[in-house]
Every structure is written in structure tokens, then in C-alpha cells.
Design a protein around this nucleic acid. Structure first.
Lengths: 123, 123
DNA sequence: ATAAAAGACTACTAAGTCTATATACTTTAT
DNA sequence: ATAAAGTATATAGACTTAGTAGTCTTTTAT
């Protein structure tokens, strides 16, 4: 599948898409081939690509605050005591709840669910 | 409690804190009194103030993407079919997981948990 | 061998958001 | 009257995100 085709079908600027695909490629999730007849393909089974990994590559942290992040941790500058901070604990709980869903959801799951309409109650 | 005191104790610029407190006041969570001897106080019982409400006032949406947001919904510009979009469904699941934690966590809970140290495994 | 196709890489711009500051105004206590 | 304290609005600067541009490299077809 070529960048140009995806860009056209999904109405995304080609050059912008290029950068995202490059990140995913460099992280090992995509395979690419240069030259005429080249393009991108998945480098793993859709069952083995989880939303959490894609998000960390393209968006960064899952946690709402840096001090609650697993992979992009950063201490709060003005924090008195991180270890007993109740707000931080709450945000770690939120992170873990998000993480559970994100790491259980694969590309294969997402494709599967495309077939069914969303429950209007959920919106 | 005066803005100046909170600002000093928490090492937050006073004027910056002012704006946040104003938002919380205008949303009905804080009571304020002007003039000498004035200041801020909670307008509700800490048991009845939930993290989700504070976050929506100060940070906006809970969902990671606008099309999955309950209170700050915005349609994706280039989306083919929002109703069957599997990515959106996944993000709605994430939002609901976060929402569960955030709407079960009150200020009272947060204060209560300040007393206990965090589990190092969680970080 | 050459030209065209396609991705790789780097740099840059523009818009928006977030943090913070500035200034002027209103209310209240003494 | 004066000082203390919150209200309100505007603005600046830093940072982030989305998007653009141009050049380089690799591969394929002829």
C-alpha cells in the first residue's frame, strides 16, 4: 500500500502521513520498500499490534500527567512529596484503567468492530 | 484561605492560581469573599466534589480524541463513518474506563489516600 | 544507462494551547 | 479613607501539533 493512496483515501496530507508512517516503521510495526512498486505493509500480525503501542509512538504518554506516566515519566517541579501525593495516586489509577483497555485492544479487534454500529447511548 | 497563601505554600504563581480558582468558583465548587479578610473556601463537602468535575473545568475533555468526548464532543473532519469507526469505539472504551475512576474519586478520597505511601510497583 | 517512482530525512512554518504576567476594577474591613 | 483581597480582561512567551517544502536515496522499468 502506497502513502499516496492512503493519503487520498483518508484525506490526510501525504507529507504529514509520511512522518507518522516513518515513526511506525522505525518502531518496527511497518515494513517499507522504496522505489517503483514500493510502499508500506504491516510488519506484524494485526492481532499482535496493540493500540497502546501505536499511541505511545504517535502521541506519547498514556497518563494525563507526566508524574503518573510509566514510559514518559517526569517529576512535578513543585511537588512536595510524590510518594504520598493523593492526586498522583488517582491519576495512576486512571492511567491503569486506560492502559488495560489500550493494551487489550489490537488492530485486529478494531477492524472486527468496524462491522458493528456504535451504541448511541455511548455518545 | 487566601490565594496568596496557597500560591506560596504550593509554589504556584499567584496570578496563575487566581485564574484557576476563579473557574472553580464560577462553576460553583468554591465560595469566595472579597475585601480585607476575604479568601476562598470550598462550597461543597469534599465527599461531593469529584475529580472528573474538576478536570473538566480546568483541563476540558476526558477522552483522548474529540470524537469520543461526552462533554466536549467534536466530529473528526475527515471521518468516513463515525458510527462504525472502530478506532472511535476503542477510544470510547478508554474514556469510559477513565471516567469510571475519575467519577468515583472525590476530594475526600484523595485526602484520605495522602496518608498512605504509594506502591512502588505502580510506577 | 537512464528516467521515473517511491520512500527517507531534515528543516521550516503556522496555528493553537498552555503557562504566566500585567493592569485596572470592585468589594470589604478597619 | 485606606489597605486588603478577589474579579476580569488582555497580553506575552514558550511549547506543541499540524502541516509544508525540498532534497536525498533506493528500486524498478525500459
Amino acid at each position: 500500500m502506497q502513502i499516496a493512496r492512503i493519503a487520498e483515501e483518508e484525506h490526510i496530507p501525504k507529507k504529514f502521513l509520511e512522518q507518522i508512517l516513518l515513526d511506525l516503521r522505525n518502531a518496527g510495526y511497518l515494513y517499507s520498500k522504496k522505489g517503483a512498486g514500493g510502499g508500506y505493509s504491516l510488519n506484524k500480525d494485526p492481532k499482535d499490534i496493540y493500540l497502546v503501542d501505536i499511541l505511545r509512538i504517535t502521541d506519547g504518554p498514556i497518563a494525563m500527567v507526566p508524574c503518573a506516566s510509566l514510559k514518559f515519566y517526569h517529576r512535578c517541579e513543585e511537588c512536595h512529596d510524590e510518594v504520598t501525593c493523593g492526586i498522583r495516586k488517582a491519576f495512576i489509577d486512571v492511567r491503569d484503567a486506560s492502559l488495560k483497555v489500550l493494551s487489550e485492544t489490537s488492530i485486529a479487534n478494531i477492524i472486527e468492530r468496524e462491522k458493528t454500529a456504535i451504541n448511541p447511548e455511548a455518545i
